[in-house]
Amino acid sequence: MQLSWIGADLRFSYCTEHDLPEISRMLAKESVCRWLFFGPNTEEETRSYFLPLIEEIQEALAEGRTPEDHVFTIRLKHSGEFVGQCALLPVDFSPGSYLIGYQLDDTCWRRGYGTLACTFLVYFAFTVLGGYRLNGDTVADNTASRRVMERCGFVQEGVQRQYWHAGGGYYDRVIFGLLASDLAPERLSRLGETFTAA
């Protein structure tokens, strides 16, 4: 199975243990974790979460199987500079439905990388995996994340009031969804042209 994809000036690759120090540094930052329900994390906390996912991915790939979880490291195509990470995690009891996630290092904000990362997840879920539904959520006040999903075609499906407790406060959770059938065949085809083998 393919391990890396290029879209615009970014490279998306299946996450490896080699990527964990940079992911750990990113998720130790207050700025990055401001709207997350977790973090800032210690390096040990980040490793304990990501390492089992990485091991499952590597085992599946070594056996020629499609991994259950899809966690990608995002880097600049030419320099290899770390940008962030994104993921598709399967929804229990709903084959073909995935939860999306993306975090970008604060040094890479406001460059359109969040939208490109979300677009990559849409492409991968619907074109590579043949999924039928994507699920996303964010804190109501995180307007940047909301805009990313809206630009990628996600529809707001609900609000859960005071769902998350973080940083001493309670935050509403805004729920988004996108169905493969929401996208015209031409758009899915264009997504396939946007991301190529690395």
Rank of each mutant, 00 (worst) to 15 (best):
L61W: 06
D141G: 03
V128E: 13
L36P: 02
W109S: 04
V139F: 10
L116G: 00
R146L: 15
E43Y: 11
E157F: 06
E43W: 10
G39M: 10
D137Q: 09
G101R: 03
R111H: 11
F120W: 00
T107D: 10
L134V: 03
F126A: 03
F38K: 05
L36W: 01
P52W: 12
D137S: 08
Y132T: 09
I57S: 02
D69M: 10
S79K: 02
E45C: 01
G114Y: 08
D92A: 14
H78P: 08
F154M: 03
Y113S: 06
Q156K: 07
L53T: 09
L51N: 13
G101A: 06
A87W: 09
P90V: 10
L134F: 00
R146A: 13
V159D: 11
R111G: 08
L61A: 08
V71L: 12
D69T: 11
F124L: 03
E63W: 15
P67S: 13
V128H: 09
R146I: 12
A62Q: 15
D105Y: 04
T73M: 11
E55W: 11
V159Y: 10
C108T: 08
S97I: 00
E63N: 15
F38G: 07
T73H: 06
R133G: 03
F72M: 08
R146F: 14
N41I: 05
W35H: 05
Y123L: 09
C108V: 09
E150Y: 11
H70N: 10
I54D: 06
E55K: 05
L121C: 04
R75K: 03
A144R: 12
Y123F: 13
G84Q: 03
Q85F: 13
R147G: 10
Y98G: 00
L104M: 11
G64K: 07
R133F: 04
Q58P: 07
E59K: 14
V128P: 04
R161T: 12
D69Y: 12
L53A: 12
D92H: 14
T46L: 07
E56H: 14
K77D: 12
R110W: 15
G84W: 01
S97R: 00
W35D: 03
A140D: 09
G112V: 10
R110T: 15
F50Y: 15
T119G: 05
G112N: 08
I100V: 13
T42Q: 07
E157L: 09
R151Q: 06
Y98Q: 02
L104R: 01
E68W: 14
T46E: 13
R75S: 00
D141K: 01
L116C: 06
N142G: 03
P90Y: 08
T138R: 03
L121S: 02
G64F: 05
Y132P: 02
C86L: 02
V139A: 09
R47K: 15
F50R: 05
D69C: 13
G80F: 14
V148K: 05
G64W: 07
C118F: 02
H70W: 08
Y98S: 01
G39P: 06
F82P: 01
